[in-house]
Amino acid sequence: MRIIDVTLEISNEMVSFPGDPRVEIAKVLDIKKGDIATVSKLMLSSHTATHIDAPAHFIKDGLTVDRLLLENLMGKVKVIDAIDEDRINREFLSKKEIGDAKAVFFKTRNSQYLHSKSFYHSYVSLSLDAAEYLIEKGVKVVGIDYLSIEEYASVDYPVHKTLLSREVVIVEGLNLLNVSEGEYSFVALPLKIKGCDGAPARVVLIEE
């Protein structure tokens, strides 16, 4: 068994989605300075690094991250290689074997930009017809390897709204650079923040 950590490291230097608060991590106590213990203060967006979007992110009265069904956040996942795609659409997905996978993660060229300190505006995103296709297939979790699944500068956010209105959980910021296409087990557990629209998550793939 091999465990593959596909979670981004949270740091002060990491890139944030434009408009989101930047990460600030600072020590308020430090044993190196004579304090009894080391304690840090964290300031960050609920959509920092590898994170989960709950329905409440875009849907009024939608499920908050603390109310998500944990059974949907672990199990089998299909990682789909979309390296050559500029946008993931229904036509592309119809040529892929999704089967009965309840979770699908997309590996794109985005992964190579995840560690850049500059935001990559031309990231690969999911089209609306692809989102509708995944819902038709019964997928419960959709993940991608950048900070948003929606194209940059979207006005109405139809992909988010379509998925989240059907309680399909979105996982963004996956580090899939060294992951091959195939089937894995996965665990994607967000911080349990009461009433929140999303939260950073530790996500791992398990290869038997």
Rank of each mutant, 00 (worst) to 15 (best):
Q112P: 08
R67I: 10
K117P: 07
V203L: 09
H121F: 05
I193Y: 10
P190Q: 05
V124H: 06
Y133I: 04
M43F: 10
K140H: 00
E71Q: 09
E172N: 15
L29A: 15
E132H: 09
D53K: 15
K140A: 11
D197K: 15
I206W: 02
I31M: 15
A201H: 15
Y113T: 11
F119G: 04
K161P: 01
P200H: 14
M14K: 13
S11Y: 07
D5L: 07
L8M: 01
A188L: 10
K78L: 01
E9H: 06
F58T: 04
G99A: 04
N110F: 00
I36M: 11
G75Y: 04
I149Q: 00
S116Q: 07
Y123N: 10
S127I: 04
N110T: 01
I25W: 01
V155C: 06
I98A: 01
I80Q: 02
D35H: 06
S185M: 12
R202N: 13
D197M: 14
E181G: 13
L176W: 11
L128V: 02
R202Y: 15
E71F: 10
D156S: 12
E97R: 15
R87N: 14
E132Y: 07
I83K: 11
L44I: 06
Y146W: 04
S118H: 13
K33F: 08
L147Q: 03
V65M: 13
Y123L: 13
H51Q: 12
P55N: 05
D100E: 13
V179Q: 03
D100N: 09
I36L: 13
S46K: 15
L147W: 06
Y157N: 02
L134G: 09
V65D: 13
L69K: 08
P18W: 01
G198H: 04
L177C: 05
L93M: 12
V155Q: 05
D86A: 11
T108I: 03
A153T: 05
Y146V: 06
V139E: 03
K140G: 06
E207M: 01
D66H: 14
